[in-house]
Amino acid sequence: MPYRRFFVRSGNGFIIPSHRKISKHDTNISATAHIHMLEYGSDHWTRHIAFKEYLGHNEIERCRYEKFKLELSCREWNDSQEYSAAKGVLIAEIEQKALIWYADYND
């Protein structure tokens, strides 16, 4: 099972898995949710929770992350992969610190 799945709601109320090709010009369909589904306790789950909790407890890193995300929001992106690549280096750096912090925090 993929760890994330995208859904859209059509004008008639049906929810359609996003692997179906949908034109961005289709006025009958609009995105309603971006859902991440993770197995509780998995490594992937731990990375996400550690990142979230670390930012919640570390004001300096939270402000740094916020400033960076605001800078990224001012740019034009060709697609979501380009945006993800741009934020990837900082995310990986913070994630490593977060995992160390999280392990200590939960002992």
Rank of each mutant, 00 (worst) to 15 (best):
P2I: 01
P2F: 02
P2D: 10
R5M: 08
R5E: 14
R5V: 08
R5G: 02
F6T: 12
F6D: 13
F7T: 06
V8T: 08
V8G: 01
R9C: 10
R9A: 11
R9V: 13
G11L: 01
G11R: 10
G11M: 02
N12E: 14
N12C: 13
F14Y: 04
F14C: 06
I15Y: 14
I15S: 11
I15P: 00
I16F: 10
P17L: 00
H19L: 13
R20L: 11
I22W: 02
S23T: 03
S23H: 05
K24C: 12
K24I: 13
K24W: 14
H25C: 05
H25Y: 11
H25D: 15
D26Q: 06
D26F: 07
T27P: 13
T27G: 07
N28W: 07
N28Q: 12
N28R: 09
N28H: 11
S30A: 12
S30K: 13
A31L: 10
T32W: 03
T32K: 10
A33L: 07
A33Y: 03
A33C: 05
H34T: 07
H34E: 09
H34R: 11
H36E: 09
H36M: 06
L38C: 03
L38Q: 07
L38D: 05
E39P: 01
E39A: 08
G41I: 09
S42N: 08
S42M: 03
D43H: 07
H44P: 01
W45I: 00
T46C: 01
R47E: 15
A50G: 04
A50L: 04
K52A: 08
K52I: 07
Y54H: 06
Y54T: 04
Y54D: 09
L55C: 05
G56D: 13
H57K: 14
N58I: 08
E59G: 10
E59A: 14
I60E: 15
I60Y: 13
E61W: 14
R64M: 10
E66F: 09
K67F: 07
K67L: 11
F68W: 04
F68L: 08
F68T: 05
K69V: 08
K69D: 11
K69L: 09
K69I: 07
L70P: 00
E71T: 05
E71G: 03
L72W: 08
S73C: 12
E76R: 08
E76T: 14
E76Q: 12
N78Y: 06
N78F: 04
D79K: 04
S80T: 07
Q81P: 00
E82Q: 12
Y83A: 15
Y83F: 12
Y83N: 04
S84M: 13
A86Q: 07
G88I: 01
G88L: 03
V89H: 06
L90E: 03
L90K: 12
L90C: 05
I91S: 04
I91R: 02
E95G: 00
E95M: 09
E95W: 01
K97I: 00
K97Y: 03
K97F: 01
A98H: 05
L99M: 15
L99S: 02
I100A: 10
I100Q: 11
I100S: 13
W101V: 09
W101R: 00
Y102P: 01
Y102A: 04
A103V: 05
A103E: 14
Y105Q: 10
Y105L: 04
Y105P: 00
Y105K: 13
